[in-house]
Structure formats: C-alpha cells, structure tokens
Amino acid sequence: MAMALLENPKETGVTEQQFATFYVGDILLGVDIRQVQEINRQSEVTPVPHAPSYVRGVINLRGEVTTVIDLRTVLGLPQAEASRECRNLIVNSQGESIGFLVDRISDILALRSDQITPAPSNLNGIQSRFFSGVHVLETGIVVLLNVEEALAVQGTE
C-alpha cells in the first residue's frame, strides 16, 4: 500500500520539489530543501586570516567548526552590513557542513519541475553558472541556486 502512496515520477514526468527561499540583496534565491541542514542565527563569526575573500569566517556549529561563506561576494554583489535578519543557511555538501550568509529568509516553495525554466545567461550581471533554473512568481522571480557551483567558486580575491 505504501508503494501506491509514493509519487511515481515516471508516470507524469513531473516531480515536485521543495525549495527554501531567501534574499541576497534584492535577489530571491532558492535552494533544494534536501540540501539544507538547518538555518540559524549566529553573530559570532571568527574571521580567518588569509582566507579567500568570499569566506566570512568560521562558527562553532555544536562542536563542529563550520565555514561561513558570504553569498554576496560569491555572486559579485557589494558587501553589506550585518543586519538583524541575517541568517546562516547551513547546507550539506560533500559530507561537510557549510554555512551561507544570507540577508533574509523567506518562504518555502513547492515547485513542479515543469514550473522551472532554464536560467537566462545573465541575471543582474551575475554569471548564470551559479543558477540551475528560474521560477516566475506573480511578484517576481525565484532564482534557484546551484549549491555545488557556488561552493566551487575560487579565487575571487
């Protein structure tokens, strides 16, 4: 019986995915919720000397030293002051917990795969390689972030 309850993607060709959305600057971004480990608010970031510029520092995540990455710098946006709404979005990548510093957390969005369109080659001047797709809302667009690509960024110094 349990089998019947499970969605069968092959039948329809359409799957539904949930995305955690958040703001970086004016851009609404989304990350597949299965990649998100937790969202926390931690102001104690220890800066790391000689780290790449996109690394904000490290935090103590319950005994694990976790790198926090400034998404603004990765995406090439200007740095901003830390505000009260800043959050660390902890994602799990290659067995390691890594935090993204984001400006504000927004809703969780359930999208069917046919609601996602490929990202245009240029979005507000940001390279499209960071994005896996775009979804158009009534009020604007959600850009889906390619987590691995964002973490693979190198040498933006």
């Binding site: 000397p49 000689h50 780290a51 790198t67 990455i69």
Partner: peptide, 11 residues
C-alpha cells in the same frame, strides 16, 4: 578546517 580554508598558510 573546511575545504575552503585548506590553503590558509598560517593555520
């Protein structure tokens, strides 16, 4: 340290 910080020379 995480993989982004492996190259820090003084740590």
């Amino acid at each position: 340290l995480g993989r982004h910080l492996k190259t820090c020379p003084c740590l």
